[in-house]
Nucleic acid binder design. Structure first.
Length: 730
DNA sequence: TACTCAGGCTTTTTT
DNA sequence: AGCCTGAGTA
């Protein structure tokens, strides 16, 4: 029987004989060495299954073994299996490992991130949602620019209506599967939401006009399609007989609905996750999805993986002690899955330091000590809460000559020169991409500034055509002033020329040609700025990267989906990255700096109601601790400079939550009264009428107190609303 | 049209 | 402190 839902444009591999399931021998390579729980998770193929997989319990191994088992037992053809991950890295790793187990048949699995799989589906039904097959995907930057334009067109002031905040709101709606027509009326007191509700529909319309969608749309469009066109839904439901979901605790409502719809026909859905590692609620993730699994999928089986093969007993105990402070967990206790030599096991340590600089010095000196003893640097990670913390470590590592790598900094595809180059390519591929047009029309300078652009935009709007087409018509009809018209004419001719080369040149040559002939690369070669040579280099790197792809179009698609930094640290280097970035990774030794109130847990998280934010911060701390195989060094500073302002810091409450017998507290005397076990500073201690001072606004009087938010009448600056941490009592 | 300067705002985490 | 934006000027 061949795949009854085969889509015309996909060649399917030959089908197996219609025989029943094959019996997989007990010594199949993917089954050997599994512990009983892992074995159960791998071989329970039918019906809903939730695998609660703690940190370091062999989750990836189970996932890959399960896929191998599924295919080897002929329960399903590879194209009938949908395996979803959150990161491209996880998808790649899974595919490689399954291929290693059962061979190239794994290539036919539907395996990828939610976004890449949705894109694949959406390409086939683009017309149904008002796009053409060649629609483009906007990145975060383009989204904001487009939204800003919509805000202006709708008559709002971008200052009182900040595009990033509105974008975040729209994104959150998309995360919840809410298209403009499903939007419930927003709360009247939520100013941003009220504005966003007005702007959402025109924003979506502008996207369609550009034949584009944003990241969230990939899911939302497919979801809408499934809900409105039953035949399409049935087609995909029927196709995917087995669903496998990684990091289920991080799914948002839209993803959950999507999975539910797809699982409806066959009910074979296996979700793997760990409620204690849910750290993406700010991105719309719903921890409730995993907590509710057994209700959502009746008859669900549950397997707990609790044997940890990664960390030493003290690290596990410290992590367990910490996470026990969270409410509403599914409950799970990690225990060592292998023996540890008590002689060599090291305790978790915490160290107090004077300030951020001293912290960096302490960390790097410790690293140098290990290095002298011959330990590899590649097993060492510095995991920070927020990006700006990396700077001090970077400086210290440079000063001491310790090789390092910062992961997650400014990303390659987000650099201005790369985005410009990509905009050129986008315009060559899709002439209707007006955002790309606007980005590069005067880059390099062609004498087409704001004035000419505004005129052109007006023409485009009136005629209802993309900017490039408007330019073409303006040239032909002799509109606009002679000078900009000439410049436009040359530009349009160039573009036509490049487009004509599109099918004849390999992608990297086409790219090189465009960047040379447009004068774009020359612009940077002639630039005297100190960073200009680096930019030229980046452009060469881009051209080299494109050589790996079949076409410029497929490269652009890759870039749109792979916004993550997949470059792992190569060579023997210390890794510096955020805690979020570290999820799923492991290291011999882990430094956890900045364990101070308001930094970790972060002040913004503490503003959330019902301890939700705090609990997520605690899970983040848990993730950090459980990255380590053998050593954890936590640190906190007495003073830290934030926004160029020195602030006395208080040790994180999380330090006090790690049981005393699991941690050695190495406090420098005199910095803190209690050497790190100090209880957090009391908040909201300002009384109405109290006098306070602020670094910028000067002196003032407290008008009202709402939790940690104060309303203060400043003597000079007038009334302001701000967080209590920014003022001091006088 | 392009450049310079002042002022405001930022920074939580990212597919 | 730095970055971006908008206003003002060559």
């Amino acid at each position: 029987m061949s795949d009854p839902f085969a889509l015309d444009d996909e060649a399917l591999p030959p089908s197996p004989p219609a025989a029943g399931p094959l019996v997989v021998p007990a010594d199949a390579p993917w089954l050997v060495g599994l512990n009983p729980e892992q074995h159960q998770a791998v071989t329970t193929l039918d019906g809903p299954l939730l695998v609660l997989s703690g940190a370091g319990t062999g989750k990836t191994r189970v996932l890959t073994a399960r896929l191998a088992h599924l295919l080897a037992s002929r329960q399903a053809q590879p194209w009938q299996c949908l395996a979803v991950t959150f990161t491209n890295r996880a998808a790649r790793e899974m595919r490689e490992r399954v291929t290693a187990l059962i061979g190239p048949i794994a290539n036919d699995l539907w395996l990828g991130t939610f976004h890449s799989l949705c894109l694949r589906i959406l390409r086939r039904h683009a017309e149904a949602v008002g796009l053409t097959r060649e629609f483009t995907i906007l990145d975060a930057d383009d989204q904001i620019r487009l939204l800003k334009r919509v805000i202006e067109e709708e008559g709002f002031d971008p200052k009182s209506c900040p595009p990033p905040a509105v974008m975040a709101q729209i994104q959150r709606w998309k995360d919840r599967g809410l298209s403009p027509d499903k939007l419930p009326p927003p709360r009247a007191d939520d100013v941003i939401a009220v504005r966003a509700a007005v702007l959402y529909r025109p924003y979506q319309q502008r996207l369609l006009g550009l034949n584009a969608c944003d990241f969230g749309d990939l899911l939302l469009h497919v979801l809408t399609l499934f809900l409105t066109d039953e035949s399409v839904l049935r087609q995909w439901q029927g196709r995917f007989r087995y669903l496998l979901v990684d990091e289920y605790q991080d799914t948002n409502v839209a993803q959950y609905l999507w999975l539910r719809l797809l699982a409806q026909a066959h009910h074979n859905i296996c979700c793997v996750g760990d409620d204690d590692q849910s750290i993406y609620s700010w991105r719309g993730a719903e921890i409730g999805n995993i907590l509710r699994f057994e209700q959502d999928f009746p008859g669900a089986q549950l397997v707990r993986l609790e044997r940890n093969y990664r960390s030493t007993p003290p690290i596990l105990a410290a992590a367990a002690g910490l996470i026990a402070h969270n409410q509403g967990r599914l409950g799970k206790t990690l225990r060592p899955g292998r023996p540890h030599d008590p002689e060599t096991v090291e305790p978790v340590r915490s160290r107090a330091v004077w300030d951020g600089e001293a912290e960096a010095r302490m960390v790097v000196e410790t690293i140098e000590g290990w290095r002298r003893r011959g330990e590899p640097l590649s097993g060492i990670a510095i995991l920070v809460r927020v990006g700006f913390q990396t700077r001090e470590f970077e400086e210290r590592l440079i000063a001491t000559g310790v090789p390092y790598r910062v992961i997650g900094g400014p990303r390659f595809y987000e650099r201005a020169e790369i985005r410009d180059a990509l905009a050129y390519l986008r315009l060559v591929i899709s002439p209707s991409d007006s955002l790309a047009f606007e980005r590069i029309i005067n880059q390099p300078k062609r004498g087409l500034g704001a004035v000419a652009l505004a005129e052109l935009a007006g023409l485009a709007r009136v005629q209802g055509v993309p900017m490039l087409e408007a330019a073409r018509r303006a040239v032909a009809d002799g509109q606009m002033k002679p000078r900009p018209r000439k410049a436009l004419a040359a530009f349009v001719t160039d573009l036509d020329h490049w487009r004509s080369l599109r099918d004849d040149l390999p992608p990297e040559e086409l790219t090189a040609t465009v960047l040379e002939e447009s004068g774009y690369i020359a612009m940077w070669r002639e630039d005297k700025a100190p960073d200009a040579p680096g930019r030229v280099e980046n452009l060469s790197e881009l051209i080299a990267a494109i050589a790996e792809y079949e076409s410029v179009a497929s490269f652009l698609e890759h870039v749109a989906l792979v916004m993550e930094n997949d470059a792992q640290a190569e060579g023997d280097r210390v890794v510096v990255m955020t805690l979020h970035g570290a999820k799923g990774l492991e290291f011999d030794s882990v430094f956890l700096p900045g364990w101070e109130e308001d930094l970790f847990p972060h002040a913004r998280a503490l503003e959330e109601s019902n301890n939700k934010g705090l609990e997520e911060e605690r899970r983040l701390a848990y993730v950090g601790l459980t990255r380590a195989r053998r050593r954890v060094v936590i640190s906190f500073a007495a003073n830290r400079r934030i926004y160029n302002q020195w602030r006395p810091q208080t040790p994180s409450r999380f330090l006090a939550e790690i049981p005393d017998r699991e941690i050695v507290r190495e406090a420098a005397s005199g910095l803190f009264a209690g050497g790190g076990a100090v209880s957090p500073r009391r908040r909201g201690a300002f009384a109405i009428g109290a006098r306070v001072s602020h670094a910028q606004f000067g002196f003032g009087t407290v008008l009202s107190v709402d939790g940690s938010t104060l309303r203060v009448a400043f003597d000079e600056a007038g009334p302001r609303t701000l967080r209590d941490t920014y003022v001091t009592a006088v």
